[in-house]
Design a protein around this nucleic acid. Structure first.
Length: 821
RNA sequence: GCUCGGGUGGCGGAAUUGGUAUACGCGCAACACUUAAAAUGUUGUCUGCGAAAGCGGAUGCGGGUUCGACUCCCGCCCCGAGCACCA
């Protein structure tokens, strides 16, 4: 037997597999389909570290397993190459993003390829390929035509470092998710997609995603942030103006003692003629503007505000006059940008009322409003005809009485879709001097991103594309008059919102995806990726998919049936792998030193798949040792010759590795099968180790003196089970055993239920709850038989001396429990 | 503050419907092989008392249910994630 040399074996087999095309997926087979997908990476130029392959390895194991179980598996890979990370890296390296993209993809692909992953590279996609983004632009145009795309001048999140506007989803704690710079508010002309039109469906359909982890669904529910309430109107005394408020507690309407407007609320400007302290109002608004989003939204007991002198609102039912404030604890972009303040029953209003010495009127009984706001439910008081009502009941009645309207609001914001950056899909709209905004005709798609010399962001609020006059100036498709192209580009999330559909039909020139093919492959059976996408990509993609469903492009209303989050692999110091900490481990080095198969086994074995875990090169030796053991078993395979010597007619099946081994083998088949299905790769590896340790040390049951042996067929079962985990080594040994066809085309081993039934079982005797003895019994032993043995045991009888047995309990094949006085 | 996870040896982590807690791996120790080391193999390795046999204790803390609890229930503490002056 040759030494296990991964450097010789691994590249050899990868070449052969590629030549034979064993990873190619066919669209038409008589097999059931299985579509398994990794979140595709954005090639940033740093290259992969050992954390990235964790998910790729998992989907690879799973897809190989599915293939061996007779499924037609689609397992593709591609590149999410537009967007800020790639562009910022290109700028830093002073290389044009178009060129950088090619270099990065090449590097990523090399790194991924050496892991022995079974991707069908004939379906590779890249979001920056004009043949791809043609369809991103096409889908955008369909949204435009359906009125889902609107132009807006509202202040948006602006990253002063990336010099672009960002969507709410691109923020993390008020900072740019990409570069960590604090976000400013900046009014900017921009295109916005009305994703909020889909908020209710995005929320409701989560309930149908039975195979999504609860935490992801919960994150999305939080993000969408649905809240039910009422919209109420407060007339302003001596004015035509009305204040519109949103409240979840219309039942507390009688407790309103003041109204608060967000300082930015346009209504404040409308009320200028009535406001006597206007200079102060302007001053306050300036102060608020200076505050960052973080300062503004940090929970802060020290609330500030300003009374609008001269303005009074009228209570919709009692017609009492109510003072009106502006205060920055009210946000302009949620609800109506105005609240009715009920200090007795809202903590923020309570704090504000205390500070400015405003009236606190109790209308729900049950609390102590001298001390704190009472925010729970109760019976109405001080509410006129509504007294004694239950507050839930009062919600509807008071809303009706006040001429209000039941309403639902969401925290989810519309999707800011413009980026003032070069490296993205051009937005396919044209601004015509006569016709206004005109969509690019579909036949003219794609609107190609021009090659440019200067691609740095301008910071002026214009994309670098605005300077390419040759590209910008165009003819209006309607009136043929002078027109200019839209120069903003799409966000990175655009291309990734539907890429999974393109793998189904990557070369289609006539449609986003062929309908028949889509029907066959959709939906995605299993989607694997990092938790950082839970409220970003996964919301956008679900939205985009629902839109495509509405216009009849796809057949299912949800794209991803089952979802798995993978836990990040941290550096050995427990910190995120980063150049900054010097804790990055490169997969190329690991593959070189111990082999891709060892890396795959180690990443499977290190811990539960969805859990964050620190890398340990030291621990990895255990995985390599395991592979060495499997390899060495080759020497212990019972030679055919030996069998034939005994009798020419003896078939191989008549020799066996041993009864005990056989039971363990079948247990292992079951365990590994179940564990792969559950993504419990760590316990699957553990089961392999137990089996291989046993095969190596205790063959032939417990007989001693005989040489360690394993039958060829038993060894082959182990190899087939192992093939998804260690594709190269399994293939090499398989070939060594004389097979000409690839092991990856073999069928997955089946376990025999009967073999799992043990002949003997271990019984534990517990006396007063403490385990005192264990012994083997034949399976199906009766209580009487077990007791007979138990009472004959010294470990048992010594506890019963001088005691009375009060109770006996027998759980068959497990426990005999005895209770004494 | 609300919501969702989680807390088990020196370390990563196992444990089916409640039924022998600590599988598997790392590390460590001793032994074998070796001139030696590495590699490999064997044995041991939760903890207290004890020479040993053995006896007791332990799954974040405190209670409860049960013959029996890592597992179920109640109340806390801590860690991670999502949301958050959201009206």
């Amino acid at each position: 037997m040759k030494e296990y040399n991964h450097l010789r074996i691994e590249p050899k087999w990868r070449k052969i597999w590629e030549k034979k095309g064993i990873n190619k997926t066919l669209d038409k087979t008589n097999k059931p389909k299985f579509y398994i997908l990794d979140m595709f990476p954005y090639p940033s130029g740093q290259g992969l570290h050992v954390g990235h392959p964790r998910g790729f390895v998992a989907t690879d194991i799973y897809s190989r397993f599915k293939k061996m179980n007779g499924f037609n598996v689609l397992h593709p890979m591609g590149w999410d190459a537009f967007g800020l990370p790639a562009e910022n890296y290109a700028i830093k390296m002073k290389v044009n993003p178009m060129l950088m993209d090619k270099l990065n993809v090449k590097r990523y692909k090399e790194q991924i390829s050496i892991l022995g992953l079974n991707y069908d590279w004939t379906r590779e996609i890249n979001t920056t390929d004009p043949n791809y983004y043609k369809w991103t632009q096409w889908a955008f145009l369909q949204m435009y035509k359906k009125g889902l795309v609107v132009e807006s001048d509202e202040p948006i999140n602006w990253c002063p470092s990336c010099k672009t506007g960002l969507a709410n989803e691109d923020l993390e704690d008020g900072k740019c998710e990409r570069c960590g710079t604090t976000i400013e508010k900046k009014p900017l002309r921009q295109w916005v997609i009305k994703i909020t039109d889909y908020a209710d469906r995005l929320l409701a359909d989560l309930d149908e995603l039975k195979d999504w982890p609860e935490n992801i669904k919960e994150s999305q529910r939080n993000w969408i942030g649905r809240s039910e309430g009422s919209e109420l109107w407060f007339n302003i005394v001596h004015s035509e103006e009305k204040i519109r408020v949103f409240t979840t507690r219309p039942d507390t309407l009688f407790g309103v003692t003041y109204i608060v407007l967000a300082p930015e609320n346009k209504l404040v400007d409308e009320l200028k003629p009535f406001i006597k302290n206007w200079p102060e109002v302007e001053k306050y608004r300036d102060e608020v503007k200076k505050k960052t989003e973080i300062e503004r939204t940090t929970v802060d007991k020290n609330k500030t505000g300003l009374l609008l002198e001269g303005v009074e609102a009228k209570h919709p039912i009692t017609k009492e006059k109510i003072p009106v404030f502006i205060a920055d604890y009210v946000l302009n972009n949620y609800g109506t940008g105005a609240v009715m303040a009920v200090p007795a029953h809202d903590e923020r209003d309570f704090a504000f009322a205390k500070k400015y010495n405003l009236a606190i009127k109790e209308v729900i009984s049950g609390g102590n409003i001298e001390k704190e706001a009472y925010t729970r439910s109760g019976i109405l008081i001080n509410s006129g005809e509504f007294d004694d009502l239950d507050n839930e009941e009062a919600k509807t009645k008071i809303t009706d009485a006040a001429d209000g309207e039941k309403k639902v609001t969401y925290k989810l914001k519309d999707w800011v879709f413009s980026r003032q950056r070069y490296w993205g899909e051009p937005i396919p709209l044209i601004h015509c001097e006569n016709c206004g905004v005109v969509p690019v005709p579909e036949k003219d798609l794609p609107v190609k991103l021009p090659k440019v010399k200067f691609y740095e962001p301008t910071g002026t609020g214009e994309s670098p594309l605005a300077a390419i006059t040759k590209w910008v100036n165009t003819k209006c498709p309607v009136c043929k008059g002078k027109a200019k192209r839209e120069t903003n580009t799409m966000p990175q999330w655009a291309g990734s919102s539907w890429y999974y559909l393109r793998y189904i039909d990557p070369k289609n020139k006539k449609a986003l995806v062929d309908k028949k093919k889509e029907k066959y492959w959709s939906p995605i059976d299993l989607y694997v990726g990092g938790g950082e996408h839970n409220t970003r990509h996964l919301i956008y993609a679900r939205f985009w998919h629902k839109f495509l469903f509405d216009i009849g492009i796809v057949n299912y209303k949800e794209p991803f049936m089952k979802l798995m989050n993978l836990g990040m692999i941290l550096g050995s110091d427990g910190r995120k792998m980063s150049k900054r900490w010097g804790n990055v481990v490169n997969p190329d080095d690991v593959v070189k030193n111990v082999g891709a198969d060892t890396l795959r086994v180690y990443e499977s074995f290190m811990g539960p798949f969805d859990q964050e875990i620190a890398w340990s090169t030291d621990n990895m030796v255990g995985s390599r040792r395991f592979l060495d053991k499997v390899w060495k078993l080759q020497d212990k395979v019972i030679k055919k010759k030996k069998v034939e010597n005994k009798s020419a007619k003896l078939s191989e099946t008549e020799t066996s590795t041993g009864k005990e081994f056989e039971i363990l083998l079948h247990k292992t088949i079951k365990k590994v099968t179940d564990d792969i299905l559950n993504f419990s790769f760590n316990t699957a590896i553990s089961a392999f180790m137990i089996l291989v340790n046993f095969a190596e040390t205790r063959p032939n049951g417990c007989s001693s003196g005989r040489e360690t042996e394993i039958t060829k067929s038993d060894y082959e079962i182990i190899l087939k089970l192992l093939a998804p985990f260690t594709p190269h080594m399994a293939e090499e040994i398989w070939a060594n055993l004389g097979h000409k066809k690839s092991i990856h085309l073999e069928k997955w081993p089946k376990y025999d239920e009967e073999k799992l039934v043990l002949e003997k079982i271990i019984i534990s005797v517990q006396i007063n709850g403490k385990p005192r003895a264990t012994f083997e019994m034949p399976i199906k032993s009766t209580q009487g038989e077990v007791e007979k043995i138990a009472f004959s045991k010294e470990e048992v009888s010594k506890w019963l001396v001088g005691k009375k047995i009060l109770k006996k309990m027998f759980i068959k094949e497990k426990i005999l429990a005895i209770i004494t006085n």
